[in-house]
Design a binder for these strands. Structure first.
Lengths: 376, 376
DNA sequence: GGGAGGCGGGAGAGCGCTCTCCCATCGCGT
DNA sequence: ACGCGATGGGAGAGCGCTCTCCCGCCTCCC
């Protein structure tokens, strides 16, 4: 007959309590620092914890507290969703992207999965950075999720509903993303990055895109550019619309109501294509505002290939101040979007919501600033 | 007297059981698809589940199964760790980086945090892509963690020990990373990306770096380059060492034993600096092998700034086949590292380990391939 | 026809923790 | 001196689930 029937498994509160000669409740109180506990007992409990190598079991704790201290970081949008019927722009040729729409593709492979597309933009790395840096000191780690199909969206909601995370941080890449509504309908706490295109009772952080575009316009004008064009973002998302509106507005006010434009999709390739189109139609242009840095980089490439010097012949201004801006030759003059701070604020809003039970909807709008480098 | 004393909270197994007129056990069996259950009862249980909107509580399940169906994706390395004493290179001026060593910095801010550095390299996005794509169909989502300080490492281990995740996928950015050892010492399941610099009983995936470097060397030689230099990665990490060794080896075998080299740190800026150094010492060089694409991009920039055309005057070969390779002008000829597949395999290895109880250590080495584009 | 064996369902014991009670002790005021 | 609140520790009831028993019934074979 052995005395110890539990050789396996990690030590529990019970074990620590026995070692310290106190009750489970007392150990729990010491571990969680709740209520007053006699300093002497506190010390002996701490020693028992150290001696046994105790670590609280998170599942057990969650079960009773109904909190997980985990939050989901969801990148949402319409990838190549076969069920998507809310497309706005061109390209009705659904499924034309080479059958990559199978969510159960055997391996991690394929370069053009939604996940891969997402990380191709330095933007998401910055969001993650901001979120992680805010959450980490608080002992919280984000669970990374992607929701580009309706099935994936359901899985996200299910995940949240089964209490795997306390709330969600949602970054949408697409307009009319149904996820925010799904989450709030389920009564789950969430905060968005960027204003949802249809009004929803949900907190979000966003940038004053129009102000940013204004800064870009004023800079190009002040530089003396007179034949200015713009490469817009996708015009079915608020960021794309607002940057164009702000730019066009300032240009019009400066007496330049006609603004050549070409729509891009926030990718470098789309920026290249757009620049080529603009150059074909307006060979004499001397200034370009691209609605993000990636497209600006593409524009620079195409300009150089067409023998234009940047910024001597054509000045280029980007948007975001991402890593692509400094990596570019010449380095991009760009409108800074403080993504990391915004992401941190988004995390803060969610944590506030989880802590207090104030279900108030707050939105925080950040102001952009101009970063002048070599390209304009 | 109301009959229902539980208006709040989501429905539990008990509720479903009551609605279906069966026991909790039966509902559990249906939900988990375990053992045979009468089809009629099965159907009524399913209806009850749908009617009540039941979702199993993950914490409760974890508590008894001792599994979480969550895994940690840890990016590990030495950031600006004040306690680091295993630094190899120069720079003993600890803390010289402007007080940025405080882990509790108030906001998500600072651009040069470890997290930000990590995402500056497209490599990590690809790792995440591969991991996520493999895990997602299996209902598992990765928890993102960073471990660049000893405290952060302890937190990762604690996180795993408290059963917040079943295992870890570790990507080290640095040699002599103590994390793998810490994790295995704690008896926790983990798989690494890249061979640890000191041998450890742990599974990993890796690339045949030397073979990749050989491909690059052979391509440059076949192209007719005769004054070839290389920009190496950090020479204290296996990937840096092996790529140099493989390249130098092939060059030597081809009768070119003297190989000009400059060490970089896998960043674009370090690549630019290295290229500038090489050009200063060897103005007549006609071929460059950079140990990764980011440095190759930097090299291209510097070459162009010095009036060299790529590939006409100087051929450039990169390594990784990252997004930077296609974004570059001209597009980079590069050695492909199938990061996504490797990351997926890493996830597969971990899941296998978690499923079966075979504690066998396996390593899978992937073969690189040459992708010829415009730069060489 | 009767016993063995398989099959399907229920009862109930926990998993490890928190948290509400409850009780013992102590200090203090009147 | 006595009561009374404050203080600190213990007992124990769950949180929602899984899983091992156990039991009743049906089938099948000798």
């Amino acid at each position: 007959m052995t005395e110890d029937p539990r050789p396996a498994g990690s030590p529990t509160l019970e074990d620590v309590a026995r070692a310290a000669g106190v009750s489970r409740a007392t150990v729990s109180r010491v571990v969680n620092g709740v209520r007053n506990v006699d300093p002497v007992i506190q010390e002996s409990v701490r020693q028992a914890v150290a001696a046994t190598g105790y670590t609280p079991n998170r599942a057990a704790r969650s079960l009773v507290t109904r909190r997980t201290d985990a939050i989901a970081l969801v990148v949402s949008g319409a990838g190549d969703d076969p069920t998507a019927d809310d497309e706005t722009g061109g390209g009705h040729r659904a499924g034309s992207t080479g059958g990559a729409h199978d969510a159960d593709e055997p391996d991690g492979g394929a370069g053009s999965s939604f996940t891969a597309q997402v990380f191709a933009d330095p933007f998401f790395g910055r969001v993650v950075t901001g979120v992680v840096n805010y959450l980490r000191p608080r002992g919280i780690y984000p669970v990374l999720m992607f929701a580009e199909t309706s099935r994936a969206r359901d899985e996200v909601v299910a995940y949240l509903r089964q209490g795997s995370a306390d709330g969600a941080l949602v970054v949408s890449t697409h307009a009319d993303d149904p996820l925010p509504a799904l989450i709030t309908d389920a009564g789950l706490p969430a905060v968005l990055y960027a204003r949802p295109s249809r009004p929803t009772r949900i907190s979000y952080v966003d940038l004053a895109h129009q102000d940013g575009a204004r800064l870009a316009a004023e800079h190009l004008l002040a530089r003396g550019c007179r034949r200015i064009a713009t490469i817009t973002g996708p015009l079915d998302v608020p960021a794309g619309q607002d940057r164009l509106a702000g730019f066009r507005d300032t240009m019009a006010r400066a007496g330049q109501p006609y603004l050549p434009l070409a729509e891009g999709r926030f990718t470098q390739e789309s920026g290249e294509a757009a620049m080529a189109r603009l150059l074909a139609e307006h060979p004499d242009l001397d200034g370009v505002f691209a609605a993000n840095d990636l497209m600006a980089v593409g524009a620079c490439h195409v300009l150089r290939e067409h023998g234009r010097r940047v910024p001597e012949d054509v000045a280029v201004v980007g948007f975001d101040d991402s890593s692509a801006a400094v990596a570019c030759r010449p380095p991009l003059t760009t409108v800074r979007q403080p993504v990391e701070e915004m992401a941190a604020e988004m995390a803060r809003l969610l944590l506030d919501r989880l802590a207090g039970s104030d279900r108030a909807v707050t939105s925080v709008i950040f102001e952009p600033s101009l970063v002048v480098r070599g390209s304009a």
